[in-house]
Simulated scan of single mutants.
Amino acid sequence: MTTGAHAKRPKTRRADIGEAASALFAARGFHSVKMDDIAQASGITARALYRHYANKQALLSHVVHQDQSRLIETLTSLGDTPPPDLASGLRMLIETALQSLRLSLLWQREARHLGPDDYAAVRARTRWIADRVDALSIAPARPDLDPFLRELRSWAVVGLVTSPGHYDTSLASTRLADLLLQAGIRVVGCLPAQEPAHDGLRPVDRPPTGRREL
């Protein structure tokens, strides 16, 4: 007779493989991981692995898309109604991002290994996330900013809330979420940079022009 664990395994196998691949890609890099390594970490044969994923690119595409989808679902659930305040919106985003600790590591370091269509999809979803953070959190909190400065803060917030994948920490998730929230509020609330002008200081409210600034 099959046990409950054995009966359940086939239903979760694809997700289990994705989790194993995500951990290996994050720890060792895409090129250093072989399909045999992923199969071994998943507790299956390489032949069984290929029944679920055609190749490593398909696996990488799956794990990045899955992690991005968590953020997309959270932002989509809000519709066009901003959260009651900045802290509430950022808290939702942070708690969702902490469920996908490897997201920024994989999309920033490994996404270049995807095929052209998958890479374009990752970039489009990333921009959508940043645009929604701007519309739902930055714009309501900072109506004084022009679109460029709001966009700058939006990308900074996305980078911030997905940053834990780049470092090890012994902090409890609740404490880490609190620190990220405090930092996010500061990012959104910071004043525009100023530069000297003949009549005093003026905000730097222009897009970057040189390669160094970009």
Rank of each mutant, 00 (worst) to 15 (best):
F25R: 00
S61K: 01
L90Q: 05
R9T: 10
P10L: 04
Y50L: 01
S32D: 15
D36F: 07
Q40F: 09
R13Q: 13
G89L: 05
G29R: 06
A121Q: 14
L105I: 06
D85Q: 11
L75I: 09
L78H: 14
L103N: 02
Y50Q: 00
P83Q: 11
L24E: 11
A7L: 12
Q40I: 12
M92V: 02
Q108I: 05
A21S: 10
D67N: 05
S104C: 08
R91A: 12
D117K: 06
E73I: 11
A20E: 00
Y53F: 15
L71Y: 03
T81M: 10
H113S: 10
A58W: 04
R28V: 01
A87Q: 14
D67Q: 13
L49H: 02
T81E: 15
A48H: 10
Q99N: 08
K34W: 10
D80P: 05
S69I: 07
T12H: 02
T74V: 12
R91L: 03
Q66N: 13
E73S: 12
I72A: 11
G18L: 12
L86M: 13
L59P: 02
A27K: 14
R51E: 06
E110F: 03
D85M: 08
E19Q: 13
D117N: 10
S88E: 13
D37K: 00
V63C: 09
R28E: 14
T74A: 15
L101F: 07
Q108D: 15
A39N: 07
K8D: 14
H52Q: 08
L103Y: 09
L78F: 14
L101Y: 11
E73G: 04
V64K: 01
A87M: 08
P116I: 06
R13S: 08
R28A: 13
M35E: 11
K8L: 13
A54E: 08
S61L: 02
D117R: 09
S88F: 11
L71E: 07
R28W: 08
A87D: 11
A41Y: 00
R70D: 09
S104G: 13
V63F: 06
S61H: 08
R47I: 09
A121M: 12
L86I: 05
A97M: 08
R13A: 14
E110V: 00
